[in-house]
Amino acid sequence: MLKKNIIKQLSIFVNNEPGSLASIALVLKECGINLKAFNIAESSGFGVLRAIADDPEGACRVLRERNIVVKQTDVIAVSVEDQPGGLFRIANIMGDAKINIEYAYAYTGRNGPSIFLRVDDPEAAAAAVKRAGMVCLSQKDI
């Protein structure tokens, strides 16, 4: 089963106002939610905080209780030896497999550096990564 290669990312809506991100960080801290990796995308007026947490299900629940707009998004994490070359290799693999990368961000954990990828078909992407001889991390590897 390829399902184990899917990682649940938290996508959190952030008002683009001074202090918004800080207040979300405070809520995460109060609820004991530990972020392994995160990335922020901004547009005029709002932003999206994309984060990988230990317990995405639990984190989602407590954030919703605090009225924070949050969504779980399927991403994959690919282990790479070095990040710049690794990203180039992954981009080529996805290109060959005709899979579109929405966005990507890097992270270094206990299993070395890896890259998180949001793609239109995560399962096909994970299969393509494996065929190319690279390794997808599972939730417990993060």
Partner: peptide
């Protein structure tokens, strides 16, 4: 924004606006 309408993709949210 409605929580159900929120997307992790920037352009989806920009499209709502």
């Amino acid at each position: 924004i409605n929580p159900e309408a929120f997307s992790d993709k920037m352009e989806d949210v920009v499209a709502i606006k």
